[in-house]
Design a protein around this nucleic acid. Structure first.
Lengths: 221, 221, 221, 221
DNA sequence: CATGAATGAGTCTTCATTCAT
DNA sequence: GATGAATGAAGACTCATTCAT
């Protein structure tokens, strides 16, 4: 375990029930404070206060503030990664359009379970520890999607990793934009449909046109 | 001018030559510190130190730390927005694949002019002032792309704004991922080609299939 | 509680013994620094240093510098107000000369308990928060003296509030002058006698001459 | 000239017309800023800005901020002292009630010429340099009043200095209180009459009762 | 184990003053 | 003489972290 990783690892596992409750309260409180106050005002004092415990207890479970924040981010990202991994396993061997629809649906379901949380955690993901964690999670997700793509029944991809990365990025980007905007509930269905269309169209480009380079206007432009 | 905007507006314009130099040095220094230290360690002291000026000078031009950071972000985002607006104006009436190629090329050229800067500024864009600014810039860019799409010679879009938003998000997401990864120089060309493919494929889905709902894998296809 | 009041209200009450000690030390230190350095050099750093605590502790009990200073002023003014109120209650129904003597004696006793403190706090009373506090205390004192005057056995006052305000001002003014001068110990008794004479003479003017206007050289105008 | 006095003395006399204008503008500006912002926010920058000159010019005439502030206070206090001295000279040999009326009238006229100015300058008078200046001015005023009292046609005072000091304090105290209160215009006449009554009564106590000690309730109380 | 008072390094920001133009 | 950009010492205040109770 690297030095930086050691600093961000929770101190002890919540084996006892009471501990689990405290840790849970801290997670919830951290997100609430993050949402209400922003990252720079998300202090240990405020988190502990909102969680109904003392700062001392916070430090019983986390070696420092960042460890708590990263743990919260990790739980969020793990939820998404796991959902993606699961759907990718389930969709092995299917057609790419089926894959796309299932992937988008599950991705959005996981991401938008708590939109406020998702929005607030972007800031954490930009910090030193968060970036590393996000990278690790992206690797897992990319690997899962790549494996799924490799098993597609109706398409062949030269570089599954590249395509997986692009597809996930293409899902992530618009989702982030949407979270910044108004309440996602209204345009939710519309948004999902469009995202499915986007990914499907992208993957279908690999169905019959392996020699796509000649097709693109890059050639003549 | 709203209250929050007033707080983030630069104090005075650098009319004298000496002043312009100072302001420039502050911008450069802010980015460097941001890259090397991260947002939370990007303090006024460090910025002034790196810029080779005094803190007093920093506050002569910016009312507070955030104003400087937002100014830097604004310059960055304005560069991208302007590039996108320009390319969208140039590509009016063209075919969508030509549009896609041109848009992606210019977007990436603007974004990757200084990759370090782009990477560092993500964190700033997550802060209060940054979010607002980013939203404003996104509006401009979406409007420009939407206008371009509306003039396409070989496709018709029901909701140009939605499509523009999705396309920009789909460009933004993978780019952010790439910036987080290794040096983009090696895979630069490859990445651009793939992004063009992605956007082209997305827009082509609108060419012959305005009733795309039936086409999506949800149905029988 | 108004906004300004909220800003100047102590943060938490010292429930534990240790806390009470800290708060007491801060009060004493604040006065000492005020006396030695003056208001503008009475900084939080110096106060904490002299109190033998850390700045952090200061801010644990007071939300800002002014709150501490106002708290010190309040304790001072409350002491005087309470003394005046008490003497006014005790002297109800007496003759005005008896009242004057008792009032002056108690006022000076309270004010000169710690002359250095009294002198130093004038500056605090000129600041935003101090002015409000002083006004509130003056109201209390004026009300008490007015009530006492209304019960005098040998005089009748048209406007007890006015007379009370004038009398208190007439006590306050010379006292402030004296505090600015040399050590009050030498001329203490002499000063008190003169002040009693002043107030007594003023009040006696109301004994038999309610139509005093004609008496004054203001003439008929 | 003592060290502290040297630091607070204006740098050069405004012999030229332009200089006089600038100095006048600085004085006016200083008072305005003092009134609007309070002593601690009464900065050289703001004063120069309001005066329509540059900070450089300010330092052309005053060696430092306090010198300017003290100069403003001095002008204010000199005005009052001069008025008092003049009235004292004029009233030589008169009856004490005439003296009292004239003194009070002139004192209030001088003090309330610009009530805002008077109010704002209290804070300056509490600062190191101000206290010294005020003491010096008080000496002058006390001497003048004492001389006048010594020449009274209908009363004899053991210690004219003491009586003068007390009387001036008794005028100053209520006036300060009034300035802190509401607009003085309404109750102005009433206030002046009462102050005349106060001083007159005080001085009359010396007319026929040189042995006032026996009269005071100190004896029997 | 829980608590929360104490700590003090580190932030942002202001402002009197200087001096090159 | 006038100007105002530059300076940096100094102030108020925050907050992660420790440790005695």
């Amino acid at each position: 375990m690297s030095t930086v990783a050691a600093l961000l690892t929770p101190r002890k596992s919540p084996v006892q029930a009471r501990s689990a409750v405290t840790v849970g309260a801290l997670h919830t409180a951290a997100i609430q404070v993050l949402v209400r106050e922003g990252l720079s005002r998300c202090t240990t004092t405020r988190i502990a206060e909102r969680a109904g415990t003392s700062i001392g207890s916070l430090y019983q479970y986390y070696p420092n503030r960042d460890a708590l924040l990263v743990a919260v981010l990790e739980r969020h990202l793990t939820g998404i990664s796991t959902a993606v991994e699961q759907v990718c396993r389930e969709q092995r061997g299917r057609r790419i359009d089926v894959m796309a629809a299932a992937l988008v649906r599950r991705f959005l379901a996981a991401k938008l379970r708590d939109p406020e949380e998702a929005k607030a955690l972007y800031a954490v993901a930009e910090e030193r520890g968060g970036v590393l964690l996000a990278a690790r999670m992206r690797e897992r997700t990319v690997a899962a999607v790549a494996a799924m793509l490799g098993s597609a029944s109706d398409a062949r991809f030269d570089d599954v990793c590249l395509v997986a990365t692009m597809a996930l990025g293409a899902m992530f980007g618009p989702t982030q934009t949407m979270l910044r905007g108004a309440a996602p509930s209204e345009s939710g269905a519309c948004f999902e449909r469009e995202l499915v269309l986007l990914v499907t169209a992208y993957w279908r480009a690999y169905q019959s046109a392996p020699d796509r380079v000649g097709d693109t206007p890059t050639g003549t432009a």
